[in-house]
């Protein structure tokens, strides 16, 4: 069922949509809150959402910034779900109490991911730059669950938490979330400026993934996802998906607050506009997406046995740190023999 020749769906399956860049937090790894792009007016957004639904997109994940800082988020979500798309969101959780959770449910949100970077309150608060944010995030998870919304925890792996895999898993299980998503550190926006302080060395990434994969296989109480193509190096498939390497530009696209379309939130290459361009046409014909889908191995990737699975690793990181999407992901620890 998965061996279709060069299958490219006719439109993205899912869209990550940054409806605002405003944020109430001051995270050191943030890629968006310093982005000065405008926000689209709700009526323009409705037209764009209609177009996205017509193209066949199955789901929208709202992000930002903090999406809840858009006063009309509930209307936008409701409109999207009325247009037959599944709606989810990533939030820092600070503004979610039981009333807000009920509103989210009524507006069609089926899933909300809450960002939590440490199981230790002070560590999380310091990293996110806001006192009390840990407590509010934990509270948000329980309010969302009570409202009948599926929850997940998103954790960006970096210097402050890479040795805490077991504790983070235990924490997620205790808080009864469905998924725990360990995200690799992307080096975009402030993540780039703070990379020396926050990013791991290639060897630290290897040790983290060795540990995390072992923990994932032993843990039955929760789904743990590791979205990093480089884990192919440890013999692990990213997942059972047909899509190899990075998923951006193959399954998903990112829309910025001003309507600009980029392959993913961490790749600052604008391929078009959701206001002006035809989404399906861009999806099929964008030269940038074409290059991302047909990467040419360079450097140590040329001789790597894992290339068909890994495809040079995370494209966003290769671009951010080397300027060339075909270069090996700088997080890759493989040494050429």
């Amino acid at each position: 069922m998965s061996d279709m020749d060069d299958f490219l769906p006719g439109a993205p399956l899912t869209i990550n949509w940054a409806v605002t860049n405003k944020c109430n937090f001051k995270c050191s790894h943030c890629y968006s809150r310093n982005d000065p792009s405008d926000e689209l007016d709700i009526n323009v957004l409705f037209k764009c959402i209609e177009g996205v639904a017509k193209a066949g997109v199955l789901s929208i994940n709202f992000g930002g910034g903090e999406p809840l800082l858009r006063k009309d988020l509930m209307e936008i979500a409701k409109f999207s779900s009325q247009n037959s798309m599944r709606v989810s969101m990533n939030s820092n959780g600070f503004l979610i109490d039981s009333g807000k959770a009920a509103e989210l449910k009524d507006s069609g949100f089926s899933k909300v991911g809450i960002s939590i970077d440490s199981h230790m309150p002070d560590k999380h608060d310091n990293f996110r730059g806001i006192k009390g944010s840990y407590e509010r995030a934990v509270k948000a998870i329980s309010c969302l669950s009570e409202a009948g919304i599926e929850t997940s925890i998103s954790t960006v792996i970096c210097k402050i938490n890479h040795n805490d895999v077991d504790a983070l898993i235990e924490f997620a299980i205790k808080n009864k979330v469905k998924n725990l998503n360990f995200h690799n550190f992307k080096c975009s926006g402030l993540g780039y400026s703070n990379k020396d302080k926050l990013d791991l060395t290639a060897e630290e990434w290897r040790d983290f993934y060795l540990h995390a994969l072992k923990a994932k296989h032993k843990t039955e109480d929760i789904d743990i996802s590791l979205d990093d193509p480089v884990i192919a190096l440890l013999g692990a498939n990213k997942n059972d998906s047909m899509v190899k390497g990075s998923i951006c530009g193959k399954l998903s696209l990112n829309i910025k607050s001003n309507g600009d379309i980029t392959p993913c939130g961490f790749i600052p290459m604008v391929i078009g506009s959701i206001i002006k361009d035809d989404l399906k046409d861009l999806w099929i014909n964008s030269p940038v997406l074409e290059r991302m889908r047909k990467k040419t191995p360079k450097g140590k990737c040329v001789t790597c046995d894992h290339y068909t699975e890994c495809l040079g690793g995370c494209t966003a990181r290769a671009i951010a740190l080397t300027g060339d999407m075909n270069n090996p992901d700088p997080h890759c620890w493989r040494h050429e023999s």
């Binding site: 069922m1 998965s2 061996d3 279709m4 020749d5 299958f7 769906p9 399956l13 899912t14 199955l58 789901s59 998924n179 789904d223 996802s225 979205d227 997942n239 059972d240 998906s241 047909m242 899509v243 998923i247 399954l251």
Partner: peptide
């Protein structure tokens, strides 16, 4: 047999099915 006529999407994974599937 190798033409995907539908896509299934679950937990970030895509599966393509042929006409019979």
């Amino acid at each position: 047999e190798k033409i995907g006529t539908s896509v299934l999407y679950l937990n970030g994974m895509m599966l393509s099915l042929n006409i019979l599937g």
